[in-house]
Simulated assay, not measured.
Amino acid sequence: MPLHVPQAPAPALRSVLTALGSPTAVREARTPSLLTAQGPVTPEQPLPVHVLDSVSAQGVPATRLAGWRFLIRAGDRAVAAAETRLTPDGWAFSHFFEGPYIRSTELALQQAETLTQPYQPRLLSVPGLYMLTLWLHGDCTADGATGAPAATDLLVPLAPAPPGIAASRPHRVAELLPVLTLRAAPASPTPPTPLLGSPA
């Protein structure tokens, strides 16, 4: 079942196209794969990037839109990504980058295409764990720039994932979110004293 990729704001796409057409912007990006790409490069797969700010005591996540990310394709593969951000004057190009998340995003999208249920792909950043996930939202008609993960949505941790969390495996939000919340919680300043006779 094909993914229903949300439509990025036209000014965000224009800002990326303008940056790609600027030798100065590409050179200053210092992304070797973009500098050495053969043939035309095109921005594809626009994904809204949401940040997980908090989770309520009832387990309800609060997220905010941080920008739109485009995979930059050269030939048959993504070689870099472009990030846009919202400014007081509207959507603007932020930066180019490359690294392991480019390939893992591409692989996760390919895997998601094989699922039987249709989804709207997004990215969800978990800053407390330095973690990025592909968020597969069940409501394909929703505005990609708004909303929070539903319990039945899927999260696919992208490689590199934090230790103990399997990358490239889809997890239901209801199952993974409590784990992420627990892992991201600040450690207590002093560990509780174990009771006598209990395992330490």
Rank of each mutant, 00 (worst) to 15 (best):
1 M>G: 08
2 P>N: 08
4 H>D: 12
5 V>P: 06
6 P>Y: 10
6 P>C: 14
7 Q>N: 15
9 P>A: 15
11 P>I: 14
16 V>D: 05
18 T>K: 06
18 T>R: 07
21 G>A: 09
23 P>M: 11
35 L>T: 00
35 L>A: 02
36 T>F: 09
36 T>M: 12
37 A>L: 05
37 A>S: 12
38 Q>W: 10
42 T>R: 14
43 P>T: 15
44 E>L: 11
44 E>S: 08
48 P>F: 11
52 L>G: 00
56 S>A: 14
58 Q>V: 13
58 Q>A: 15
59 G>V: 10
62 A>F: 14
63 T>D: 07
64 R>L: 09
66 A>F: 04
68 W>P: 00
70 F>G: 06
75 G>K: 01
77 R>A: 15
78 A>M: 09
80 A>T: 08
84 T>A: 06
85 R>T: 12
85 R>K: 12
91 W>I: 03
92 A>D: 04
93 F>W: 05
93 F>K: 07
95 H>I: 05
97 F>N: 04
97 F>M: 09
102 I>P: 07
104 S>R: 05
105 T>C: 12
106 E>Y: 09
108 A>H: 03
108 A>W: 04
110 Q>E: 15
111 Q>M: 13
111 Q>P: 06
112 A>I: 08
115 L>S: 13
122 R>S: 01
123 L>W: 02
125 S>V: 15
130 Y>W: 07
131 M>R: 02
132 L>Y: 00
133 T>I: 03
133 T>V: 06
133 T>Y: 00
134 L>C: 02
135 W>K: 02
135 W>G: 02
136 L>Q: 01
137 H>S: 05
137 H>I: 03
138 G>A: 10
141 T>H: 09
143 D>C: 13
145 A>D: 10
146 T>W: 09
150 A>K: 07
154 L>G: 03
157 P>L: 06
157 P>S: 08
158 L>K: 03
166 A>Y: 09
168 S>P: 06
168 S>Q: 13
169 R>Y: 13
171 H>Y: 15
173 V>G: 00
180 L>Y: 01
183 R>M: 08
189 P>D: 09
193 T>D: 05
194 P>V: 07
195 L>M: 12
195 L>Y: 08
196 L>S: 12
198 S>P: 03
199 P>Q: 11
